[in-house]
């Protein structure tokens, strides 16, 4: 019995808790991608870099606050800096829209032109981020590191396996829940939110109903900036901030958005968790887990790892491929904001 409990704790510690945190980060990021897709009708390759930019501003403000001794006690100071990061990112994406995308919108350019433009924006933003903060790792986590440490848990439960929950993981999940509820409330209950859904559903009819397309696009960008900054900061707090990571995270983000159906917010959230849990469970070494559950002499020799962590991005890719082969519109079918 105790072995089973140990096995469960082990899985929770190394698989479920990290999966939940990572899934929340992906869900928030994928929501931003899906939002842009639903309203502006293109896959935004610059989304990862938008996340990086927002995170960078948050980090800079965090450092400033830390230097002044301002903090949130047990919580990371970054939460205090987040609004500034969000505001700066909103300004950035609105300027990008004004200078880049609006022109193609007026021209009614095909989506692939938007796509290329977004790749240009991606490198521009990437350059800005590296220019300002440099290409190296940055840590900005402070406050209490753990909600519960492995040792505390062991003492509490008397089990051999420990369960550690990092503060950042707790914050990530809670923030994600709050943001998602707020977003859905906005989309389903407010006039502006409904007008965005209407615009995403049927642009021509939305125009006939007197919905202002410029406002819809602007609000979509504002939400994208908010989601991107929060997702990026949470990711940076949880892991660490490396500018190049935000390019690599693009693949899991797109996979999440496509699995759930591009343009469908509910799908993006589901997709985020599907991708996160697949990635974590495929790269998890099950040796110890099996050792607890199997009879003693059955214990496996190898790591029992399905895939080396070096290939974790391959998991997103395989998921993507499967979805494209089986149901290209995604689980929840696309284009329904």
């Amino acid at each position: 019995m105790e072995d089973v409990l140990n096995a469960i704790v082990l899985i929770t510690n190394f698989l479920i808790v990290p999966g939940l945190a990572y899934g929340s980060q992906l869900a928030l990021g994928a929501l931003g991608i899906t939002l842009v897709y639903g309203i502006l009708r293109f896959s935004n390759f610059a989304h990862g870099e938008t996340m990086a930019f927002g995170t960078m501003i948050t980090i800079l403000v965090t450092w400033f606050l830390q230097a002044r001794g301002v903090g949130l006690g047990p919580l990371p100071t970054a939460l205090l800096a987040l609004p500034v990061g969000i505001a700066a990112t909103i300004v950035l994406v609105l300027l990008t829209d004004k200078w880049v995308y609006r022109f193609y919108r007026n021209q009614k350019s095909p989506p692939v032109i938007f796509l290329i433009a977004s790749v240009g924006v991606m490198f521009l933003m990437n350059g800005i981020v590296r220019f300002v903060i440099g290409p190296r790792d940055q840590t900005f986590t402070d406050g209490e590191r753990f909600i519960i440490t492995a040792r505390e848990f062991k003492q509490l439960s008397g089990l051999r396996e420990g369960l550690a929950i990092k503060t950042t993981q707790g914050i990530t999940v809670i923030t994600a829940i709050v943001i998602v509820i707020a977003l859905f409330w906005f989309l389903n209950q407010t006039r502006t939110g409904k007008s965005m859904r209407a615009y995403s559903d049927n642009e021509d009819l939305a125009l006939l109903s007197g919905i202002n397309p410029d406002k819809v696009v602007m609000v979509a960008w504002i939400f994208t900036a908010i989601l991107a900054t929060i997702a990026g900061t949470l990711y940076g707090l949880d892991k660490s901030f490396k500018p190049f990571v935000y390019l690599q995270i693009l693949l899991p983000l797109f996979a999440s958005a496509i699995v759930g159906g591009l343009g469908n917010p509910l799908g993006a959230i589901a997709g985020g968790f599907v991708v996160a849990f697949s990635e974590v469970s495929f790269t998890f070494a099950y040796r110890k887990f099996l050792a607890y559950l199997l009879p003693e002499n059955w214990a496996p020799e190898g790591l029992v790892q399905l895939l080396s962590t070096d290939y974790k991005f391959a998991v997103s890719f395989v998921i993507l491929v499967l979805v494209l082969l089986v149901k290209p519109t995604g689980i929840f079918s696309g284009r329904a904001l």
Binding site: K194, D204, L205, S209, G210
Partner: peptide, 30 residues
């Protein structure tokens, strides 16, 4: 539309993903 004209296109004339009530609300957006 602001001058008092309402138009019902032949195709794609409802917001399919939105409820009937929301469709009507969107009609009254202005």
């Amino acid at each position: 539309v602001l001058k008092g004209m309402g138009f019902v296109p032949q195709n794609n004339n409802v917001f399919t993903s939105m409820t009937v009530e929301e469709n009507l609300e969107m009609g009254a957006f202005i």
